[in-house]
């Protein structure tokens, strides 16, 4: 092995500096043999090694000042705080999202409640409209049972509806009779009364799933009555013992309300 090759091999493999990169075994053997025979190469590596050692001893390794240590730690602490800030921000953002969802849910619920309420109004008003139609069309002239006796009418309805129909006697009005109505698939009992100038229809039906609207309610003897008007007819509607009672007539609302107290 020539001097150049031996020096390059040992220098490159950092044997000089105690490096672990080892040349291949055969080359190692050749380098060893070369160094044993070549004083120049031995001296070359000795000089390199001495220079390296001398530099290590003579070059000052100034340490970091306490001020620098404090500054570094302070900046890292600050950075650590900043790195936590996004997670805090994420927390706030998450809270905002939850709050937003809650608001959305609340608005949704309110809207649903309002819609349901409007549906109730609509349902009640729709029902009132249907009953007004029926009243206007027949004006108490069409009955299936004609009698001025409440018991007769009660008896006639007994097998036809699931609830008891007990028509009261109304002042200044005569009981005409009754018939069975079908209000959109819902059976209802119609009792007809007649005043000298007006007809009064009393509808009785199962009202368990019908809620009276909160608006347009008049409390009469602590009983809420829904009062409305359509096409010149007044309507008074109330619930009693699970039944819905509806009075329809062209007489005044106040008189209809007064009549409702008879039930």
């Amino acid at each position: 092995m020539e001097c150049g090759a031996a020096r390059k091999l040992l220098y490159s493999s950092q044997v000089l500096h105690g490096e672990k990169l080892a040349p291949a075994a055969t080359e190692t053997k050749e380098v060893r043999l070369h160094l044993e025979r070549c004083a120049a190469c031995w001296q070359f590596f000795a000089a390199e090694k001495e220079l390296s050692d001398a530099l290590r001893k003579r070059l000052p390794r100034e340490g970091a000042s306490s001020n620098l240590r404090e500054q570094v730690l302070s900046r890292i602490a600050e950075e650590r705080g900043n790195s936590k800030r996004p997670s805090r921000w994420r927390f706030v953002r998450r809270q905002a999202v939850i709050l937003g969802l809650l608001v959305f849910l609340l608005v949704g619920l309110l809207s649903a409640a309002l819609w349901l309420r409007s549906r109730h109004i609509e349902k009640s008003e729709q029902l009132a409209s249907i009953l007004v139609d029926d009243h206007a069309r027949y004006q108490s002239t069409t009955t299936e049972v004609t009698s001025s006796e409440p018991e007769v009418i009660n008896s006639w309805f007994r097998d036809r509806v699931r609830f008891s129909v007990q028509p009261p006697r109304l002042p200044d009005s005569s009981l005409v009779g009754g018939r069975l109505c079908n209000l959109q698939g819902r059976p209802a009992a119609l009792i007809s009364y007649r005043k000298p100038q007006s007809a009064i229809s009393l509808f009785i039906l199962d009202g368990r799933d019908i809620e009276l609207p909160k608006e347009h309610l008049i409390a009469l003897d602590e009983r809420p009555c829904f009062v409305t008007a359509e096409r010149g007819y007044n309507v008074v509607m109330w619930k009693q013992r699970g039944l819905l009672y509806v009075l329809v007539s062209d007489i005044r609302s106040a008189d209809l309300l007064q009549l409702s107290t008879r039930f």
Binding site: Q14, E19, R56
Partner: peptide, 8 residues
């Protein structure tokens, strides 16, 4: 290399 004695 010389002061820190790091490997290549």
């Amino acid at each position: 290399s010389d002061v820190e004695e790091m490997s290549y």
